[in-house]
């Protein structure tokens, strides 16, 4: 029997809706609080809008977990239309509350419709990569056990590299993890942080540092090549580079360098509003799935 499957996710994906080729999808919006006022991502409230606020008004921004009522509303609206709901959630380590809400809603609907919560163990375009990986799976196979098992493989093989021009945004958001070691240097450094799918701790880790964006771009290429050699693979399945603006030259340099790596699905992602809270201007990320 062909199952009708609804996918739920949230808007910190590093992807625009047009880049997700699956019709049955609902995208929740993370609440973003800027100077105590709540906003949601829209055509008006974007990563660029927030960056300008950061630079010009020195605002303080943070995100909160997804809203439980909104998730229930989606489940309620769709419970009779689908056989299965798959919820691709951002890393449970990065947002315990969001994952707890997803879990709670799954339990609420235990006797109504099966819900699989997939802990992507990622943020930003890493979540996007896991989402697209899950879509690839369900297009070929709709056995629930297989979906769960194969999704885990996607998660374990998704790696996210971030270049953060200013770690204070991540620090203020409470997501700095082990990368805190890179803060407060007299010498201006640009750190490379990572969320590695095969890292059991699932925390943001420092992977390297450079003095210039060109240096860190070269280091990212080295890190990706090392990861490919470790696995080992010769071609990357999916690669998403997403820039948070105000750093075109560095982003172009990265794009040029990264195109030398063989890849089946190369995506230039979309900087999302919620992600911009933690990245700030001049940042960019590379998510790979292998």
């Amino acid at each position: 029997m062909n199952k009708k499957i609804l996918i739920i996710t949230a808007d910190n994906l590093g992807l625009s809706k047009e880049q997700i080729h699956y019709p049955d999808i609902e995208i929740l919006k993370f609440p973003v609080v800027v100077n105590d006022k709540e906003y949601r991502g829209s055509n008006e409230y974007t990563a660029q809008w927030l960056n300008e606020k950061y630079l010009k008004e020195k605002v303080v921004a943070k995100t909160t977990s997804i809203v439980k009522g909104e998730l229930i509303e989606i489940a309620e609206k769709n419970k009779d239309k689908y056989d299965l709901i798959i919820h691709v959630v951002m890393s449970s380590v990065m947002s315990i509350a969001t994952f707890a809400i997803a879990k709670n809603v799954k339990e609420m609907y235990e006797n109504t419709i099966p819900i699989i919560n997939i802990d992507s163990r990622q943020v930003l375009s890493g979540v996007g990569n896991v989402l697209l990986g899950v879509i690839d799976i369900i297009k070929k196979n709709n056995n629930t056990d297989d979906i769960v098992k194969l999704s885990q493989e996607v998660i374990q093989n998704t790696f996210n590299y971030f270049v953060m021009a200013d770690l204070n945004y991540l620090y203020r958001g409470g997501r700095i993890g082990k990368a805190k070691a890179l803060m407060g240097s007299v010498l201006r450094i640009t750190p490379i942080l990572g969320l590695m799918g095969d890292d059991e701790e699932g925390q943001v880790i420092p992977l390297g540092k450079g003095r210039t964006f060109k240096q860190v771009n070269s280091k990212i290429i080295d890190l990706i090549k090392a990861k490919m050699a470790e696995k080992p693979v010769t071609v990357i399945k999916r690669l998403n580079i997403t820039g948070f603006g105000d750093n075109e030259e560095a982003f172009s340099d990265l794009e040029e360098k990264i195109k030398t790596i063989p890849c089946d699905d190369f995506i230039i992602g979309k900087a999302d509003f919620a992600g911009a809270v933690y990245c700030g201007p001049k940042s960019y990320s590379v998510a790979i799935s292998i």
Partner: peptide, 8 residues
């Protein structure tokens, strides 16, 4: 302990 987190 360091390599086995209490993730769910």
């Amino acid at each position: 302990l360091a390599n086995l987190s209490d993730y769910e």
